[in-house]
């Protein structure tokens, strides 16, 4: 049995859910970033899978979007981690529970 598109999508869905779990459940700010990166990777996996199973075009659109989204995710990670350091310097904590200045 060769893997179908469905199987890939379920794997990517699982990866996404694990990322969501990390982003929602962990208190440390770095875990939120890790979770977001995993969700982005799941999305990229989706793009590649659809490109592989769908009709072929020149240029390979799915691959291109994956490349660009990786680049953007890298930028996002850099800024996000810089924010973690800045927040840590200012509040002396990386615990997002304690960052509630936006409370209504």
């Amino acid at each position: 049995m060769t893997p179908t598109l469905q199987i890939f999508l379920i794997v990517s869905g699982a990866l996404f859910s694990i990322g969501l779990l990390a982003a929602l459940s962990r208190r440390h700010a770095i875990f939120i970033l890790i979770g977001i990166e995993m969700m982005l990777a799941a999305a990229n996996l989706n793009f590649i899978a659809f490109w592989r199973f769908g009709p072929q075009h020149q240029p390979p659109t799915g691959v291109m979007i994956a490349i660009f989204s990786i680049a953007i995710a890298a930028a996002e990670a850099a800024v996000g981690l810089a924010m973690v350091i800045a927040v840590y310097r200012h509040y002396h904590t990386t615990n997002v529970d304690q960052l509630d200045q936006l409370r209504g």
């Binding site: 699982a14 996404f16 969501l20 929602l24 459940s25 208190r27 529970d97």
Partner: peptide, 20 residues
């Protein structure tokens, strides 16, 4: 010490089942 937010687990599981 870091707590663990179990409601997040519930949401993640729900999303996974919905997607699947």
């Amino acid at each position: 010490d870091r707590g663990f937010n179990w409601s997040g687990v519930a949401i993640a599981v729900a999303v996974f089942s919905g997607l699947t």
